[in-house]
Deep mutational scan, measured.
Amino acid sequence: RERTTFTRAQLDVLEALFAKTRYPDIFMREEVALKINLPESRVQVWFKNRRAKCRQ
Rank of each mutant, 00 (worst) to 15 (best):
19 A>E: 10
24 P>N: 03
8 R>D: 07
5 T>L: 07
36 I>P: 02
3 R>D: 12
42 R>D: 15
12 D>S: 07
29 R>K: 02
41 S>A: 14
46 W>L: 02
8 R>E: 15
10 Q>S: 02
9 A>V: 12
25 D>L: 05
11 L>G: 07
12 D>Y: 04
48 K>C: 06
37 N>I: 00
25 D>P: 03
52 A>K: 12
34 L>W: 07
7 T>V: 04
33 A>L: 02
39 P>D: 08
26 I>V: 10
49 N>I: 05
43 V>E: 00
27 F>E: 11
55 R>Y: 13
38 L>W: 11
16 A>E: 09
47 F>A: 01
20 K>I: 05
30 E>T: 14
34 L>P: 04
40 E>H: 06
44 Q>D: 09
37 N>W: 01
8 R>F: 02
52 A>R: 10
5 T>M: 08
49 N>P: 10
19 A>N: 14
15 E>V: 06
16 A>W: 04
22 R>Q: 14
6 F>Q: 03
5 T>V: 11
35 K>C: 03
23 Y>C: 11
34 L>Q: 15
46 W>G: 00
51 R>A: 07
36 I>N: 05
44 Q>L: 10
37 N>G: 14
7 T>K: 07
21 T>D: 08
13 V>M: 11
7 T>L: 02
13 V>G: 06
56 Q>A: 14
49 N>G: 09
31 E>D: 07
11 L>E: 12
11 L>W: 05
23 Y>D: 11
44 Q>S: 12
51 R>F: 00
45 V>M: 13
12 D>V: 12
29 R>Q: 11
17 L>R: 02
51 R>K: 00
31 E>I: 04
5 T>F: 12
18 F>M: 04
35 K>Y: 01
55 R>I: 08
33 A>D: 15
32 V>I: 09
46 W>S: 01
6 F>V: 11
30 E>W: 05
48 K>G: 06
5 T>S: 10
7 T>W: 01
38 L>A: 15
21 T>F: 03
18 F>T: 00
13 V>R: 07
41 S>C: 06
28 M>H: 07
16 A>I: 04
37 N>D: 14
14 L>P: 00
48 K>P: 00
16 A>Q: 09
44 Q>K: 09
4 T>R: 08
6 F>M: 13
22 R>D: 12
1 R>G: 10
40 E>N: 06
51 R>Q: 03
45 V>P: 02
38 L>S: 09
11 L>A: 12
35 K>T: 09
48 K>S: 08
24 P>I: 01
14 L>T: 02
8 R>C: 07
21 T>I: 07
46 W>Y: 04
43 V>R: 00
11 L>Y: 05
39 P>N: 09
55 R>W: 10
7 T>R: 03
5 T>K: 06
27 F>N: 11
36 I>L: 15
26 I>P: 06
17 L>S: 07
43 V>N: 03
10 Q>E: 04
52 A>G: 11
17 L>H: 05
39 P>F: 01
30 E>V: 06
22 R>W: 13
51 R>E: 06
38 L>Q: 10
28 M>V: 07
4 T>Q: 12
39 P>A: 07
2 E>H: 05
41 S>D: 13
38 L>M: 14
56 Q>P: 15
19 A>D: 11
39 P>W: 02
53 K>P: 06
25 D>W: 00
14 L>V: 01
28 M>F: 03
22 R>K: 14
13 V>C: 09
44 Q>M: 09
52 A>S: 09
31 E>M: 09
38 L>C: 15
44 Q>N: 14
18 F>K: 02
9 A>I: 04
3 R>M: 10
13 V>L: 11
18 F>Q: 02
53 K>N: 11
29 R>V: 15
3 R>F: 13
27 F>D: 11
32 V>H: 02
23 Y>H: 15
1 R>C: 07
47 F>P: 00
41 S>P: 12
20 K>P: 01
14 L>W: 00
48 K>Q: 15
9 A>G: 07
23 Y>L: 03
14 L>Q: 02
1 R>K: 15
1 R>E: 08
56 Q>I: 11
24 P>A: 00
19 A>P: 03
45 V>D: 11
49 N>F: 05
30 E>D: 12
49 N>K: 09
18 F>P: 05
24 P>F: 01
56 Q>S: 08
56 Q>G: 13
32 V>G: 00
14 L>I: 01
27 F>L: 13
20 K>S: 08
53 K>A: 10
27 F>S: 14
41 S>N: 05
36 I>M: 13
30 E>L: 09
19 A>T: 09
29 R>C: 12
50 R>Q: 13
12 D>M: 04
8 R>Y: 13
36 I>E: 03
21 T>S: 07
19 A>Q: 10
19 A>G: 07
35 K>W: 01
30 E>R: 13
48 K>E: 15
45 V>W: 14
11 L>R: 10
16 A>C: 12
54 C>D: 15
5 T>H: 11
15 E>M: 03
47 F>R: 01
10 Q>M: 00
49 N>M: 11
41 S>Y: 11
53 K>W: 08
29 R>G: 00
39 P>S: 11
14 L>S: 01
33 A>R: 02
8 R>I: 03
17 L>F: 06
34 L>G: 13
26 I>Q: 10
24 P>K: 01
54 C>P: 08
53 K>C: 15
24 P>M: 01
28 M>R: 08
49 N>D: 15
53 K>V: 10
51 R>N: 13
50 R>M: 13
3 R>Y: 11
31 E>N: 09
15 E>C: 02
8 R>P: 15
40 E>P: 06
29 R>A: 05
31 E>L: 06
7 T>E: 07
4 T>K: 10
32 V>E: 01
51 R>S: 03
29 R>S: 05
15 E>Q: 07
20 K>E: 06
34 L>V: 12
9 A>N: 10
35 K>Q: 13
14 L>R: 02
56 Q>K: 06
20 K>A: 06
40 E>D: 07
48 K>W: 05
19 A>Y: 03
